Simulated assay, not measured.
Amino acid sequence: MKANIKLISKQRKFSEDFKKSIVNEFESGKFSVPQLERLHNISNSIIYNWLYKYSSSNEKGQRIVEMKDSSSQKLKALEQKIKDLERTVGQKQIMIDYLEKMIDIANEELNIDIKKNSNTPQSNGSAPTRKK
């Protein structure tokens, strides 16, 4: 009975079509090498070997550089930054409106002119204070 037992190989073997499909997925820009590695549970060194072997543009000895952030992620980050800046500008405008309203109230109710106009006479200063 022991003569009929075959040892099972621990290494997986991939077909040429599968290897080429992985290379095509990378070259189309759908997936990066780390994404393909996680998706198919294949080490990145094997994927890079396939890229060098089956790719029409990548050759052995040339470095493959992948963009870490895609343009869509950069666009989303910039849109979020714009929203944050617009929120900040809005808050500052509310503060300006509030302070202008307080100046108008001080002028109307307390007869204090806080705004300096060109026709407002200069102050003579305050009287010296006495020490006790």
Rank of each mutant, 00 (worst) to 15 (best):
residue 106 A to F: 14
residue 84 D to H: 10
residue 94 I to P: 00
residue 34 P to F: 05
residue 1 M to Q: 14
residue 65 V to K: 04
residue 7 L to K: 15
residue 71 S to L: 07
residue 38 R to L: 08
residue 112 I to M: 05
residue 67 M to R: 11
residue 4 N to K: 15
residue 86 E to K: 10
residue 1 M to N: 14
residue 18 F to V: 15
residue 12 R to A: 15
residue 31 F to S: 12
residue 126 S to Y: 13
residue 104 D to T: 14
residue 89 V to F: 11
residue 106 A to D: 10
residue 79 E to C: 11
residue 132 K to I: 08
residue 89 V to H: 01
residue 3 A to T: 12
residue 46 I to L: 14
residue 10 K to N: 14
residue 15 S to F: 12
residue 119 N to F: 09
residue 60 K to Q: 00
residue 31 F to E: 04
residue 70 S to C: 09
residue 44 N to C: 06
residue 87 R to M: 08
residue 19 K to H: 08
residue 24 N to R: 02
residue 81 K to I: 01
residue 114 I to N: 10
residue 22 I to D: 05
residue 87 R to N: 00
residue 69 D to G: 01
residue 89 V to C: 02
residue 104 D to F: 11
residue 100 E to G: 09
residue 67 M to L: 08
residue 3 A to E: 13
residue 60 K to G: 06
residue 121 P to N: 02
residue 111 N to M: 06
residue 41 N to T: 10
residue 68 K to Y: 05
residue 97 D to F: 03
residue 32 S to I: 04
residue 84 D to G: 05
residue 122 Q to R: 13
residue 70 S to E: 01
residue 75 L to H: 03
residue 132 K to E: 07
residue 55 S to Q: 03
residue 116 K to H: 04
residue 88 T to N: 13
residue 92 K to P: 02
residue 103 I to T: 07
residue 130 R to Y: 08
residue 72 S to N: 10
residue 20 K to Y: 13
residue 66 E to A: 03
residue 40 H to W: 05
residue 72 S to R: 07
residue 93 Q to V: 07
residue 128 P to L: 07
residue 125 G to M: 08
residue 72 S to P: 01
residue 126 S to P: 00
residue 120 T to L: 08
residue 11 Q to F: 10
residue 11 Q to A: 09
residue 115 K to G: 01
residue 98 Y to I: 10
residue 59 E to C: 00
residue 88 T to K: 15
residue 52 Y to P: 06
residue 111 N to C: 13
residue 38 R to Q: 13
residue 48 Y to H: 04
residue 119 N to C: 05
residue 71 S to Y: 05
residue 52 Y to G: 06
residue 26 F to I: 09
residue 61 G to Q: 01
residue 120 T to M: 07
residue 47 I to D: 00
residue 22 I to P: 11
residue 9 S to E: 15
residue 62 Q to M: 08
residue 116 K to E: 11
residue 7 L to F: 15
residue 35 Q to L: 09
residue 80 Q to W: 11
residue 132 K to A: 09
residue 2 K to R: 12
residue 114 I to T: 12
residue 34 P to K: 04
residue 50 W to M: 06
residue 102 M to C: 10
residue 129 T to A: 07
residue 23 V to E: 05
residue 87 R to G: 00
residue 115 K to N: 11
residue 24 N to F: 00
residue 54 Y to W: 01
residue 85 L to V: 03
residue 51 L to S: 02
residue 37 E to H: 01
residue 92 K to A: 00
residue 126 S to F: 09
residue 40 H to N: 07
residue 124 N to V: 09
residue 76 K to C: 06
residue 23 V to G: 02
residue 27 E to F: 07
residue 50 W to N: 05
residue 68 K to A: 08
residue 123 S to P: 01
residue 111 N to W: 03
residue 68 K to P: 08
residue 116 K to G: 10
residue 3 A to G: 03
residue 82 I to A: 04
residue 60 K to P: 04
residue 61 G to K: 06
residue 31 F to D: 08
residue 100 E to Q: 11
residue 53 K to H: 07
residue 2 K to Y: 12
residue 71 S to P: 04
residue 101 K to I: 12
residue 84 D to L: 12
residue 9 S to D: 15
residue 61 G to E: 03
residue 26 F to S: 03
residue 10 K to T: 05
residue 103 I to W: 01
residue 20 K to I: 14
residue 82 I to W: 05
residue 61 G to H: 04
residue 88 T to M: 13
residue 94 I to L: 07
residue 82 I to H: 04
residue 93 Q to W: 08
residue 95 M to T: 09
residue 96 I to Y: 06
residue 81 K to M: 03
residue 65 V to D: 00
residue 107 N to M: 11
residue 62 Q to G: 03
